[in-house]
Amino acid sequence: MFELSKEGVEFVKKEMQRYETKRSAIIPALYKVQEENGGWVSPECVTYLSQLMDLPEVWINEVLNFYTMFNKEPVGKYHVQVCCNVSCAMNGGRELADHLCKELNIKDGRHSEDGRYTLSRVECLGSCGTAPMMQVNDKYYENLTKESAVQILKELP
């Protein structure tokens, strides 16, 4: 069964006090759960959070399902998000995503076979002047080439 760490529970309780309503703490709480659950939010995480926060599960599910940054399925150690919106598409973003699939052994266009990477083709991340770019977990990598992107990803610990 999923449970947050002691530090995680404290974080959620603090967030519940931080805003005018405790409902506002759902987004930060889901981030914390996702972080401690290996990068995704499982149905049992939602049940757990609902009990911890004393909020209806449906409120948590509504948020979980609406926003793209919460993963509803397991992801690799590195979630690689390649922007394929207009400015990035014009500067090779889509080709970069294809290239990464090949180089990182991502055969289904989503997960590498060793579970190290998950690749998503995403919409504008506000890095249009430094296209093409990718976001790996929290961090932006900009002005990429096919070679530099592969190198960055392979060199990650």
Partner: peptide
Amino acid sequence: AGAYICGEETALLSSLEGK
């Protein structure tokens, strides 16, 4: 948490309310 529509002010406020 990732939604273009939250740039629209009433959607943003809904999001800020945790919805």
